[in-house]
Structures are given as C-alpha cells and as structure tokens.
Write a protein that binds this DNA or RNA. Structure first.
Lengths: 332, 332
DNA sequence: ATTATTCCCGCAAACGTTTGTGATATGCTT
DNA sequence: AAGCATATCACAAACGTTTGCGGGAATAAT
C-alpha cells in the first residue's frame, strides 16, 4: 500500500464526518457505541496512526522530552537516560537526546532546537564551562519546563535535582575509617568545581570529627595520569606503608590502580581503595573495587517525577538531593 | 514576551502577505531585495523560528533521524551515535535515540514510533533475538530509508553496514603469531552468533595457514565469569607455561584479566593478551591491553554517508564493510 | 401536544507553513 | 499604440488533527 491512513479516509469509507471519527477513536461520550466499534475496527484494519505533526501543530506542543548532556559516552548519564526513557515511554512520551560536547555554544544550539520543536520538557546537565543562564531563562518565556540534574547552576530560580555530594563525601570517609585505622590518601578532581568542594568538605568533616585529620593527605587530579603520579609519589615518600586510598571518580580510580600496579602493590593487602562511582567500572577489576554508588538511574527516576510535578503546575521551584549507597568490594 | 513569532505576525506588521514573508525568508527570487531586507530584519528582531510542526505537516516528513540500538550503555554504540550525531547536525538534522532493551517487542514499538513521527531515516542495530523482519519491510512501504549496522539481518534486500569480522579475526591471529611463537588460547563469545563464527573462521584460517593449528585452544564464554573459569583452567592444565591469549570482546577480556590475576600471572611476562575492542576499556588497565579496534565512530560515519546515498535515490541495495585497526599495548 | 432533555453527529475554524496560480504594474519591444 | 515579457506580490488551498458550537432526532417529562 502506498497511501497512509487518515481520519478523512476512514470518514469517507464509513460515510460519517471526520470529527466523529476523531472522537470515536478517543472514546468521546458523544459518539454511539456502535459507531465507535465500526470506526475502531476500520482504523485497526488500515492500521491508522494519528499524524504526529498535525496533532502537535494543533496542541501546540509535542510529546517528546529532551535530555541535554555534556557528553553521552558516560555511564552515569547513560543510566540517567535509561531511567528517564523508561518512565517517558510509559507515559507515552519519547526522548530526544542531545549532547553538548561540553561546549556552551553547542549547548545553546541544542536549546534552540528544543524550543524549535516545542518539546514537552528538558532535562539538562550543564557544560562545565556554561557561563550565562540567559538562554535557559528564555525557555521559561515559552513555557517549557526545565529540570537541571547533576551539573546544576547556582541560580536559585531553577528546578534542580542532584547528588547529595556532601553526604556522599561523608559516607565515603566514614566507611574508610571504619574499615581500617590507617593513613588516608584522598584524591579529588578539579578543585574549582563545586562538586569537588562539596565532596571534599563532607570527607574532611568526618576526618576532623574523628580526629584523624593529621593522617589525611589530600591532592587533586584532573586526569587519570595525574592520579597515577600522585599515587606513586605518595607511596614512595611513605615507603610503601599500608594506606587507605580514596578516589572521587572512576577516572581517578583507574589512575590509582595503574599507580599501585607500577609500585607492585596489591589490593587489599598492600593498600585499600574506595571510590565514588556510578557502578560499572569498579566491578571490572580484580579484586572488585569497593565504591559509594551515585546512581544515575535513581537520579533519572527522581528527575522524571520532578518533571511531572512541575508540569502539573502545583509546585514550587526547589532543589532535590539523592542519597548514595555503599557497594562492598574486595579492595577495602 | 508571551507570544511566539509567526509568519502572520511579521506579515501584519509589515502590511504584506504571509506568502511573501515566507518567500522572503528563504531568498525566493520572486521578492524584491528591499522587501527581503525588511522582512529579515523584523524576523531577526522577533527572533522568529519556523514552527517545525507546521513545516513537517506540510512537507510530510521531519528532519529527524532515528537510531535504534539494543541498548545504549555500550561504548561501541555510543561512538556510533556520536559520529552520526555530528554528521546529522551538520546537515541540519537531529537525532532521536531509541533503545530496544534487547527486546524484539520494544524494538517493534520503536519502529512504530518512527513511522508515527515520519522520521527522515532509521539506523538500526538488531536485537539478538529479532526473528521476523516484517516490521522493517513495512517501513519501505512508507518510504522511510533504513540502514542496518553492526547487528544486521541475513536478508539480502536490506542496506547494511558492518564490521569486517572475518578480516578482524584474521588480523588478530596474524598479530598474535607475529609477536610470539607460543601456544594460543582463544576465547570467543556465544558460538551461535554469526559474529562469533566469522571472527573465529578468520582466526583459525590464519592459524591453519601458519601451521600452528595444533597449538591453538579454542573455547567460548558468554559472560565474564566463564572467561575467568576458562583462563584459570587452561593455565592450571598447562602448568602456567607462557601462552598468548586472544579475547573476542571487552567482556571476555575483563574475565581473562581477572583469571590471570587469580593465577598471580602478570602481563606481558607470564602471558600475552590481545583483544578485539571498541577502544575504551583496554586502555584502563595496566599494562594497557593491545587490541584490534572496531570503531563504532567510523561505522557511524560510514552509515551516515550510506544513508545520504540512499536518500538521494541513486544507489542499489548493498552491504558495506569496515576494516579494523591495530592499537598496540603493553600486554603483547 | 408542547416543552425539555438527552443522545449523536456534522460544520467550521484553527494551528503555521508552503506553493501553485493569478493579479497588477512597469518597462520594453514592435 | 498595442503587445509582451518581467518583476513583485497576494490569494487560497492544502497538510491532518482537535474542538466549540449548533442542530436534528429520539426520548422523557409536563
């Protein structure tokens, strides 16, 4: 068959009006049961599907949500997307995934695209270099609901859903101190990022409360190779004495592992290791690395329900936080 | 401002007709230069953007490509998507990413969605359990171009772009034999899958040609833990004598590494390791694992150009293959 | 028998755009 | 002066759907 089914075709075929067909298909009370039956039957036979363009044009908004992330090749964002996708599908929405390549210009371009397509709502994880929020403000003028997640702006007027970074830092420190009484090497990421600052604050607060601050060494690594360097340096200075290592991210964890390997030190006997992770990489190593899990999946679920609340209109702007959970591993 | 700009608003404001505005904005020769200038100026001021719904409704197709993959959390598909996304954006298209959860029903549902939205084209990697191709045939009746990639159907009537698996298998075997004269343990994935069969054929063909078939041990592992078991077993039987290990995938590679770790054997002195990979995981370990790279990114580029060819109409149905490249690592 | 109520259904406008066709005016050709 | 080409624009139909409104017929109430 070359021609796609439409309301008009069904109405012609049944000698009734287009509007009756339309109403019949959505069980409007104004149409007789018998008519409904006939319409639905024919519709099924022609496998009619409403033309999304026409529907959206009429309704002035589409049934697609947009997710804008710095980069898609990231397990955390993956699981976030997966969660949102599940819920969205269940509610009859579809997902449009856009990546900003960590470039604010591309990010803005993506927002244009969203406006352009009148998406039903947008989930955004900001670029690390996003400076001005004006393009986002603009979305509100066209009534597109916005939920920031993970990388959220400081601005108070936005809806945000994020990891409870401070608590996660605390949790990691508590675990480390509970397992081993030992000097601790903690390697964090870029010290300028607020995520780093919050996690570090949580971590050090616990150490301070436990009175082990003097046994704590802190350093920062932007990339895996810096983490390698810090690890090797630390143990060279301390003569390969046993220590507990804390890593703030997957990337740093990989660096630490390479460093320990270079030093011929083995987990968990020569050193202990605990990281914060989204849950994929730590299980690939042997022994598996213990980690505090920041679940992208859970964050996705939370974000979606938040989006629904916002769309229903009866809620105020606020920030939600998501707690982390401990996943044991042989490295601790 | 609460109201979005439209052609009508511009035309009212300038006291000219809607059609003239429309034509002016797309540099139609039928409108005077001066008029064009005024229209464009006002359009820019109101930052007018054409309503995508209306355009698509009129044009009967959208500027959205769909990518349907078994699951999105997979580095190979990621890089594929990334490549397609780049090209699509450059051509003014946007991407809709759909995952089938490796479920044929969800896959079919996704196809419905694509038809429903009149996407400009679809890139599909099949579910491992997809049995009947009828839903895909249906797409042709509505003129939606289709490109299968990676997991492609046997059906000859479809356009396909895939990894040159046989050649990749050959390449791996050649590399392994060139580096070390030693017994070889080769661990492949599910023996039922055609990808496994092609890679294994390439691998064994080379061994046969080199006359080292008698030194080759082949086994199959569906998951990482099976690979662990096979590795440990092999070396226990052979008394931890040096051997070269070949792994067909990232997952198997992880298993092999865990196995070697249990055996207290170290790369590259106690054993050598070469894997086939998409390029992310092998570099995380220490030493970095040598691998033959099957590039999802390159496959994406190839698929997109193929899609463009198909859409231009002047081409025949065919299958394209993509070659792999060797990435050295300390494990070999 | 008249009025009110309920049940079905069709008319028509609207969403914003694209595009074929026709209209007007101007300049140019003969 | 008549004919013709060219340049510039407006009209209107179409894409497929949703929905307010109104109307006719059947039933119930008075």
């Amino acid at each position: 068959m070359k021609t796609t089914a439409t309301l008009k075709k069904i109405s012609d075929h049944l000698n009734i009006s287009i509007s009756t067909v339309s109403r019949a298909l959505k069980d409007h009370p104004d149409v007789a049961p018998e008519t409904k039956r006939r319409v639905k039957e024919l519709a099924a036979m022609l496998d009619y599907e409403p033309n999304a363009f026409a529907v959206n044009l009429r309704k002035k908004h589409s049934n697609v949500f947009a997710v804008v992330v710095p980069e898609i090749s990231n397990y955390f964002y993956h699981s976030f997307i997966q969660a949102v996708e599940e819920d969205a599908r269940r509610m009859g929405y579809t997902l449009m995934i856009l990546q900003s390549m960590n470039d604010p210009d591309v990010e803005e371009q993506n927002l244009r695209l969203c406006r352009h397509n009148h998406v039903a709502g947008i989930f955004v994880a900001l670029t690390s270099r996003t400076a001005h929020m004006q393009p986002f403000k603009k979305l509100e003028t066209v009534d597109i609901p916005l939920v920031f997640f993970d990388k959220v702006p400081a601005d108070e007027t936005f809806n945000k859903v994020s990891i409870a970074d401070y608590d996660t830092g605390r949790q990691a420190a508590e675990l480390l101190l509970k397992h081993r009484k030992a000097p601790v090497l903690a390697i964090f990421g870029n010290a300028q990022l607020s995520i780093t600052q919050r996690r570090e604050k949580g971590f050090t607060d616990v150490c301070r409360e436990a009175g082990t601050l003097n046994k704590l060494t802190i350093c920062y690594a932007e990339h895996a190779d810096e983490a390698v360097r810090h690890t090797v340096q630390y143990f060279q200075i301390h003569g390969k004495a046993f220590a507990s290592v804390f890593s703030m991210s997957d990337e740093i964890m990989c660096g630490v592992l390479k460093g320990l390997n270079q030093l011929q030190m083995k987990l968990p006997d020569d050193a202990a290791l605990l990281t914060i992770s989204n849950g994929f990489l730590p299980t690939l190593f042997s022994p598996e690395i213990a980690f505090v899990k920041t679940s992208g999946y859970d964050l996705g679920k939370l974000s979606f329900s938040r989006m629904m609340e916002i769309m229903s209109g009866k809620t105020f702007v606020r920030e939600n936080f998501l707690a982390s959970t401990y996943i044991p591993g042989g490295s601790l």
